[in-house]
Design a protein around this nucleic acid. Structure first.
Lengths: 215, 215
DNA sequence: GGAATAGTGTCTGTGAGACACTATACC
DNA sequence: GGTATAGTGTCTCACAGACACTATTCC
């Protein structure tokens, strides 16, 4: 058996919310943004992947977290492949910006449209995100800096894929000291809504999970 | 600036409980067990690190989880270092076995006794373990296959570093369907204790965390 | 009986879900 | 008024912490 070359890549699953859907950023409509380590200029893994993300000409990234590292002899031909996976959020993307954003639902339906195991990586990252949405304020980082409670609830519902009861959601957020009231209200054809911003840059961890409907 | 060689290692923080203390397995009393990827024989990262762990001549490993991957230009001299970190449990170690197990507390007190950033890696793994202990049945895997509720509570207390209230702990475990009563009882100079075993190999996830004392 | 640990009864507190209700905007 | 969304009042339920209590063993 011949010795295979060891290749190391960094890959990132960038999520955003557009048109009330969870979207993922793809290159050439078929692969996750990735890079390799520049052994001269990169100091850490995180700075390396951030450099790549900043080259994509997107709004500022609001969150970045390492998901896991995948290593496999057979992932790529003639290569022993190591991939360090991150997921990140781009909050407040201009909608209808381009076709580089694809709904997660589309990827789940047509996983083979993506190269290698990229569909599976996206699904794994989604599960991590969904899990954290149950007990943290993480979905708030998918929104612009200022938002209403209804918008925040909608973000949770988009991520989790189920409806949340309004009163308990608002209680949870307001009692946890994670939001700060701004002086603004959001206007539309109905009662205006209080606008909030996050009190902290790090997500808040709640003591209990969102259970959804009682069984 | 010269291009540095990229080196990839797998490292594992093996925990066990001995003498009512959380212990970590060290080689030469100063470093974590580690290995490199054998690009001919290893198929996945996990099989590579398991092969290394099995060479250590320990009781069977009862749990293994990837913690994170660290990449750094300056961690090792003349190398761009990538380290994939795991943590694992060896349940039911024969106590007083050897000096290869060191209390986590000792490592926290004297972190510089370990090579590189191994003390920090152990602390990061401990935090991950402590966090999971708050909302899962993970500490049960640090015990032998059969154990009493008091032993399980003690395992939680050793991991978390604080006392847990007995009644709520027992309620939590018994109501969650994670334990199975065996036909055995544990005898000593006092009332015998019911012996249990785990109902599932995967840790159970609770809806609420252990809060500890009410503030 | 005494010591030790196993195991229970039960009160209170927190925060979730359910759901009907009120409030305030535009038309 | 009608419609739409914002926001509240309040009941019940699950489950955590507190802590006093009982149970069973060996000595």
């Amino acid at each position: 058996m011949n010795k295979k070359a060891l290749t190391v890549t960094l890959e990132v699953v960038l999520f955003s919310i557009q048109h009330e859907q969870l979207m993922v950023y793809l290159e050439d409509n078929q692969r996750l943004p990735h890079c390799v380590i520049d052994q001269v200029h990169d100091k850490t893994l995180e700075s390396a992947i951030l450099k790549k993300i900043n080259q994509l000409d997107l709004p500022t990234i609001s969150y970045l977290e390492q998901v896991k590292t995948i290593g496999d002899a057979d992932r790529l031909p003639d290569m022993w492949s190591l991939a360090v996976i991150y997921f990140g959020f781009i909050g407040g993307v201009d909608e209808d910006q381009s076709s580089t954003w694809v709904p997660v639902k589309t990827i789940c339906k047509h996983p083979s449209a993506l190269t290698h195991d990229h569909a599976q990586i996206i699904i794994d990252s989604l599960h991590r995100l969904q899990n954290k949405a149950l007990y943290t304020s993480l979905p708030a980082l998918l929104l612009p800096k200022e938002f209403t409670l209804s918008e925040l609830q909608k973000a949770y519902e988009i991520v989790l894929g189920f409806k949340i009861e309004k009163k308990s959601f608002r209680r949870r957020m307001q009692d946890a000291n994670v939001l700060i009231e701004t002086q603004k209200v959001r206007h539309a054809n109905h009662r205006p809504a209080q606008v909030y911003r996050l009190a902290h840059t790090e997500p808040h961890i709640f003591n209990r999970i969102i259970e959804g409907e009682r069984g």
